[in-house]
Nucleic acid binder design. Structure first.
Lengths: 344, 344
DNA sequence: TTGAAAGCGTTACCAC
DNA sequence: GTGGTAACGCTTTCAA
């Protein structure tokens, strides 16, 4: 292992003070170009690299952003990570990951990282804070961006879940469907998400707006768990009962839709002939499944979160909090069509 | 923002020295239980949290592990992250992400992080170092685990790519297929991966072992790019030419297989009647596609990498490097069957 | 069992 | 434009 050289070594070699080395290497003003060149040469020769911890301790900045999420192995999270990273890395910021286990109060983990001065800012994905948590959050004093949820302070990035689900339901209603099913569910953990409920409300709204009776048209399944397996389970249960199947299904996520689709096909139902299905997200594979879906640009959301953090950091803490609604759109593919027997 | 209390504040309140506070809070020996209790009470009252940077600067440990990969938005990476996190977090280690852009020498980024004392250890996923790089790597002096590649120093975790691909090919040969295609490709970047070649060799070996002529039986497509889109492209090209299609396809990844499958079905081919397909990985959705595949436990690989790092850290730098081959297995599903016309 | 003090490697303020 | 030096907040000898 090469011996580690410090700023002092560089100073000696260049024949200047450590203060000057520090300025020169960071490109600060008030350093003659001659001195600067000499310092840079010395640094290069000694293979000097700034100690991030010492620098951070002295300057107060860590150049690290913490990403908090319930888990990191889902498609959604990996897209956000990617978008964030794309913005943060070029700006010289690192990304630190914190998975919030279901059992632990999310705010506790946050506390330690922020108070321990490990991160300069925080991005939360689908972390839902309760009243008690919020008390503890204010004191953090570092910029915070929430994705998928909202808070009275800090930036937030969401989509219009209600409108998205409405659009999906409208699409099915216009095709002639009159027996709809919404498949949602709380997310995989106990950090209860309002997202699923909002989407259910959106579906109901579309039905009402079409002059129809929600009680007659809509059925809601709340055990889809936003997962592949959950979508399967819902479909299986549906087929085991005696009542007729709905003709149109709106799923709160593409992964649930894929599970449902898969199970439906396995048991001989054809999509969209027997059953129309709309998903949510526009997963990479939605296209392969020919899945009609509500597209949201998740990578772009990650980028936006990164930019918000960076801007807030640059501007000081006084930036007014913004709530941004990311665009969504209906992508029509092959999983939706008029119902086989149009009510007549 | 609550005023930050330091170890000095705690010491004053508890009426002891900072040295004692440091020992007491970290549970070191030689602290009377009375003192310890008093210190803990003071820390609690002041809501004291250790400054990670200062602690790290003084102790030399960062309690952070760096994860290096070409990108983070693929299924494979997200599984590794998840496995790593599951082991690291309980041990008090954080995970820092570095995406290696194709244009930059990977080793440069590593240098800065390690030399900058930002991480205690490094895990690399599918990062392939060339001779020149290796020179610079030795000096790092922190534990390193490579996933998917090998190095003469540092731990490595791979699967037997050759044997996996052999098993896939054998499966098809036993079903009676005599015209095979292997779909691979360098990975999405210029960091050339030997993985694809190894798998191609495995297929060839199975053919030879079966007493057949590789030149007659095997065709290789190296533009699958390990992606969905790549798999599609290969299938499309195949159908545009005049020669007959192969009857059995082995794909270097499930994502390529899914793309290929999707394209095949779109153009009216049925699987497995017209075409048998075997994938690689056992992607979460492989099951949905009914895809026969070579399963590798990626989450387990992530866990193992975490444990190796932790063990090495605990043991000091003297642990002998290990190369571990993770288990794989053939999972038979519905995408493979005997060819329609058995050669007779 | 406890305390004093010397680092750890920077940054930033204040003279010069 | 440059240098001296006090922080930054903790860990870790070494004495007591």
């Amino acid at each position: 292992m090469a011996s580690r050289s410090t700023i002092g070594d560089v100073a000696s070699l260049a024949g200047v003070s450590v203060a000057t080395v520090s300025r020169a290497l960071r490109g600060l003003p008030n350093v003659s170009s001659l001195t600067k060149a000499r310092v840079e040469a010395a640094a290069l020769e000694l293979d000097y690299i700034v100690d991030a911890r010492a620098s951070s301790l002295a300057s107060g900045r860590t150049h690290t952003i913490g990403l908090v999420a319930p888990w990191f192995d889902s498609w959604y999270e990996s897209k956000v990570i990617s978008g964030l990273e794309g913005v943060l890395a070029p700006a010289g910021y690192d990304l630190l990951l914190y998975a919030i286990k279901t059992s632990v109060r999310p705010v506790q983990t946050l506390r330690e990282r922020v108070r321990g001065r490990t991160v300069d800012g925080i991005v939360c994905i689908d972390v839902f804070f309760d009243e008690e948590d919020v008390e503890g959050l204010r004191e953090f004093g570092v910029p915070m961006v929430l994705i998928g949820s909202r808070l009275s302070f800090g930036h937030s990035l969401t989509i219009d879940n209600l409108r998205g689900a409405s659009a999906a339901a409208e699409h099915l209603l216009q095709l002639g469907h009159r027996r709809l099913l919404y498949v949602g569910g709380t997310q995989k953990s106990e950090l209860v998400s309002p997202v699923s409920d909002l989407r259910a409300q959106g579906v109901a709204k579309a039905i009402t707006d079409a002059g129809l009776d929600v009680a007659e048209v809509l059925e809601v399944a709340n055990d889809g768990a936003f997962s592949l397996a959950g979508g399967r389970k819902v479909m299986r249960r549906l087929q085991q009962r005696s009542e007729p199947l709905p003709t149109g299904v709106i799923c709160g996520s593409d992964e649930m839709a894929m599970g449902l689709l898969s199970e439906a096909r396995t048991s001989g139902l054809s999509v969209p002939e027997d059953l129309s299905v709309v998903g949510f997200d526009d997963h990479d594979l939605a296209d392969v499944f020919g899945l009609t879906t509500i597209r949201q640009g998740i990578y772009a959301t990650g980028e936006m979160a990164g930019r918000l953090i960076l801007d807030t950091l640059a501007a000081g803490e006084d930036l007014p909090y913004s709530h941004i609604e990311m665009p969504i759109s209906l992508v029509e593919r092959d999983s939706t069509a008029p119902p086989r027997v149009v009510a007549g």
